[in-house]
Structures are given as C-alpha cells and as structure tokens.
Design a protein around this nucleic acid. Structure first.
Lengths: 334, 334
DNA sequence: CCTATCGATGACATCGTTGTCAAGGCGACA
DNA sequence: TGTCGCCTTGACAACGATGTCATCGATAGG
C-alpha cells in the first residue's frame, strides 16, 4: 500500500479510502490511485487490515467434515461454500476422519487463523473445550452430529426418525429378521440410528434380541466382511439396515459376492452415488446434505449479524427413496 | 498476548518466546506463561505474527478445483489436505464451476488472504494475470488443466494418451462407429481428449468424418439428452467414448432408458463411483486424483523450500479399468 | 576481587492496514 | 470581503505479533 501511495503521489490513508470505496475522495485522486494499484498489481492484505478494523472480521470460515472426499461431506461443503461466496467469505475445509486428535488440531488451526465462525463435525467425547471461544463470540454450528458437553447451534438429520422409517419400510415388506450394520456406539449419529431401529422394532412388537447387530463399521471393507460373516452364521437376516453410505456399499458388495442381492432386502441410511442405476436399485433414507450445509452457513451468518437467540437444533428431514432393494420380500425358505 | 503477559507477570516478548518454543527462557518462566496461556485459553494470532515474521508465511494454501462435490475434485482435495496437514498448513478450498469470473474471484480472495501457494484448476483463456504474483514468489501449480499464457508447474493426467487408450480399446473390440461426447473445445482437457480420440482413429485408418462428435457437455442432463439424440439420428454409434465422469453417467442413464446398455459399448474418461457394481460394469480410463493432489502439494512445498528448477509438467498416468461396458462388441444389424 | 561471558528478559520499532483527528482549500452566503 | 462549513487529504496511533538490541545478574576465569 505504501508503494501504491508513493506511485500515486498521495498518502496511504487515501489509498486505503480508494481501495475500500470510502466516500470523499476526488475523482482525480481515485483515478490516480487505481492506476497505481493496477500498475503494481496491488492486492490489499486482508489480515493486516483486520488487525485494526473495527469489526475484526477475517471473512473466513472453518469447516470440518467427515472427509472432503466423501459425497455427503462434499455436498455439505459445496452448500457452505456457495452461501459463503455470496458474502465474500472464504472457507477452510478439513477432514475429521473420526480422529479426535485431528479434530483438535483442525479447530486449533482455524482459531489461530481467526476464522469468523466454525462449522464442525466432531468426534471428541465432549466439545467443552470450545466454551471459551464461544464466550469470545465466535459462532459455532455443529453439523451432522450434535454437540456434547456444550450448548450451541446444530444442524442435523433426524437420525432416529430416519432409521425408524427405514426399519418400518422393511417391516412392512414382511421382514422380521432385520440386521443392523453401523458404526460404533461412541458416534452420536450411529447411536441415534441404532436407537431408531430398535424403537421401531419395539413398536412393531418384534423381538430385538434375536436381531443381528454389528457395530464399529465405517468403511466398505469392514462392512463387506461383516455382511459375509452374517450369512455364515445361523439364521441369517432376510433384510439389512445399513446406517451409513460406505457401510451400505460394503453390504452391496457382499450381497453380490454371495449372489443374494435379489433375495435379501437392503435399506441404507444416507444416499449412495448412482444408487438408482444399480440392480437392484438401492433403497435409502436420504439425507439432505445441501440443506444441512446451507442451513449451517445461514446460522453462522445470522449469529455474525447479531442474532442472539438461544442455541437451537435444526432438524433436516430425511426422505425415503424407493428403488428396489428395500422392497424385496423375505425368502420363504428362511 | 498482552493479557497473558500481564497475568504471567512477564513481558510480551517472553510470552512470544514461550509460545514459539524459542530457547533461553527459564523453566520457571515457561511454566508461568503456559499456565497463564491455559487460563486465558490463549490462541496466538498467526496473521499478526506474519506481519513481522521474517519468512512471511501464513501456512495457508489456496486450492481451486472443479467443484468440491465432484468425486474427482474431492479426491484431489483430500490428497492436498493430507500433504498440507503434515506441514501444519491449512487449505482454502473453492469450486470453479467452469466460470471465469468465479476463478478470478477465488484467486483474488486467496491472494488477499496471502496464501503461501496456489493450486489451481482454471477456465480463463489465459492465466497471464498471475504473472505478477508468480514474480513475487508465490508458487502456483496448475492441476487437471495446463496453464495458458503463463509458465508454471502443472500436474495433469495424460489426457490425449488416455483418450487414445479408450478409443483403441473400443477399436480392438471391433467398433468403427465410435461417438465422442465431451465438454466444449475451450476446455483444455476436453480438447486434449478429443485430440487423443481423433489421433487414435486416424492411426487405425478409421474415418474421423463419419463419427458423431458432441461437445459442450458438462453435466448429466445435457449428456443424457445428447445420447438420446444420437440414437434418434441415422446410423447411431455402436460405441461411445465419454470424456468426463458426469458425461459418462448421463450416457449410462440414456442407454438404460433406451434399453441399449448391453448392446452399445461405453468407455468413460475418469472413474465413476460404484462403476464396478453397475450392470454392465463401466469400463473407464481412470485418472489418479490422489496422486495428482499429492504431487501438486509436493511441488508447492518444494518451491516454498527453495526449489528453483524450471517449471515442469508432471504427467500422472491413466489406467484402463475393464469392467464390461467397454468390451461389448458391435451389433451385427448396425 | 575484578572482568569477560552468557543466559534471561523486556523496551521498542516494525509489519500493512484502518480509525481518529486536525488542517488546508474552496465555495457559499451574509 | 470575512466567516462558516464542507470536502479532501494526510499525520499518527493502534491492532497483535516478532526481530533487534540493550540491560541486568549470575557465573566462570584470571
């Protein structure tokens, strides 16, 4: 900026005024400064300005998602980006990988860079460590998983309800042996989905004790292996509820391997890419990652704009997408 | 930092020393400062430090990809993130959407935030506007598409070669009417892939004039419509080469709709999620987005570490994945 | 016992920008 | 013509950190 001022033959403050479009600068001066800025390819330093600027905003957001190469996370990210772009805000994006240490590092990296707000998917047992930051006024919105040990805005799918919907769908097609495959109980969404599954079985008066429940699955390989094991054991299920997209894919692979994809029903939680093109099509309870991302960004910006309403949980509805795999009826021999 | 210094009863410079692990601070002082920092939940301001710090590094990278919710982009992003994380560098990620204005805005947003390096996918006709920044020493690595109007590092797939590979595969299965479906010619990768396709036809002595070539496709819907139109026209192709993942998906949908997925061969450029689970499996020339991202990040860090070798283009090999759709032989009636 | 040396510490300038404030110039109006 | 007020402009401090340098005290060596 000093160089621009020197070249234009004006003071630095006048350059600042021109760059920021402040009023009360003569047209001739504006022209001189703009010419100088162009000549030097000047880009103002947002962070230096921030140091002194009244609002102290970096126009930057920190986003932590499951993994930036997961389709669900990618869709959330994209929605956040679009909302942010409209306000001239840039987005730091990081992957959680369900690693508590990675969460802490990412949050710390965001805070050291003074982001205006945090949109977080978490895996730590408690996010109480964020309390001081919240008190300082940094808005935090939790996405996908609800916070623990702290109160702040959250935007989540209706996990229990969606899981119940999936389970009910299978029950209505006559299934009574419905396996549950999901991630470990320590993960809030997995817990909720498992609860929804159990609740629905209970409501239908179906014993929950005889069901196969496999937890701790979070990638295709383990899920595929678990599914194969299921059919090696006595009284295999006639239907499977898989509670996450990668788990669903693992189940599909296993059923193919066993040649049972047409006689074992499957409903997945969270949509699967090209799920409609598979044979059978994959029936899922789809989340709405776009809406989750958009809503989260809107919450952040509302907070930044001064909204002081109590922390709220936004629940984004899930939707059953019928494509074939969930409508298979139980094997009679079974 | 002032508050920490006051609470610990030391000077700010001493706090700075403790935070940065500089030598020559007594153990007692370190303990006092760390206690004060913990009490106040102090997070150093990376950008303020940067203003004065000798190296002037923000430990931040700008990444511009096609779209953060595209699987290819997501994989690139993830690889960049992992490489960056190992060096304590955070990543700004933005989507290009093949919009030149969006490119300029994203780059400008990155530069105003003083990123240490840029990893860019571009759509502008020339990236000469980056020359001043390059001269200032900011490393720029182009990914996926090569730069125009400027010389800098690039990491790309071997597009022409991969397209030729796909085309050859179809030729070897007896096809002589091979349609090309791709994006507009203005896009460097599309141009290269089209060239590889034409070259391979030429090498095989197959007329390139009689082939259906549809350009300007970049999403599922337009690609699907274009494919349907192809089969409405005289002498439809017996095989299709689709030059991008979303285009491939559109083609698959159209072939399904026509019931021709088993009698029309298809090879796609860039892998398709669950391509192995479809019927028929989708034969593709797969790129290696992980390696592209990793290599790009490595180039950036090498430049930051002082590598002054001339700008180089890294070519990441493609790989033919045979899954069924590409091995269909021509219809005899056709 | 005096001095050279070194470790520990803080005062101060500085990075690039913006908020505050004062000053100069000019036109309008009495 | 004098005064007032507005428009335009720049000097200066400040933001939160780090680089430089001086100071102080302790320790070691002669």
């Amino acid at each position: 900026m000093r160089h621009v001022a020197a070249l234009a033959g004006v003071g630095v403050k006048t350059v600042s005024r021109v760059i920021n479009g402040e009023p009360n600068v003569s047209a001739a001066t504006i022209a001189k400064v703009e010419a100088a800025a162009r000549t030097l390819d000047y880009q103002p330093d947002l962070h230096a300005g921030n140091l002194r600027r009244a609002d102290g905003r970096t126009r930057t957001l920190g986003l932590l998602v499951g993994s930036v190469d997961n389709p669900f996370s990618g869709a959330v990210h994209r929605a956040v980006e679009d909302a942010a772009l409209a306000r001239g805000v840039s987005v730091f994006a990081s992957s959680l990988d369900d690693d508590p240490a990675r969460e802490q590092e990412a949050v710390s990296a965001f805070l050291r860079r003074r982001v205006d707000g945090l949109i977080l998917t978490t895996i730590t047992e408690s996010q109480a460590y964020l309390a001081p930051e919240l008190r300082r006024g940094t808005p935090v919105v939790f996405v996908d998983r609800e916070p623990a040990g702290i109160t702040s805005d959250a935007v989540v799918s209706d996990n229990a309800d969606g899981a119940a919907l999936a389970t009910r769908h299978l029950l209505e097609h006559g299934h009574r042996r419905i396996a549950y495959l999901g991630d470990r109980h320590g993960i809030q969404t997995a817990r909720e989905r498992h609860r929804g599954y159990l609740d629905e079985l209970g409501r239908a008066g179906v014993s929950t004790r005889d069901q196969h429940v496999v937890e701790g699955l979070h990638d295709e390989a383990t899920s595929q292996a678990a599914t194969l094991a299921l059919f090696d054991a006595p009284s295999p299920p006639t239907a499977i509820f898989s509670s996450q997209n990668l788990v669903t894919i693992g189940v599909i692979r296993a059923l193919r391997e066993l040649g049972r994809q047409h006689d074992t029903a499957l409903v997945g939680f969270d949509d699967v890419p090209l799920g409609d093109l598979l044979d059978p099509g994959v029936t899922v309870v789809a989340q709405n990652p776009q809406q989750i991302g958009r809503t989260a960004a809107e919450r952040i910006f509302a907070r930044l704009d001064g909204d002081t309403a109590p922390a709220a949980r936004s629940i984004v509805p899930t939707r059953l997408i019928v494509r074939g795999s969930g409508e298979i009826t139980p094997r009679t021999e079974g």
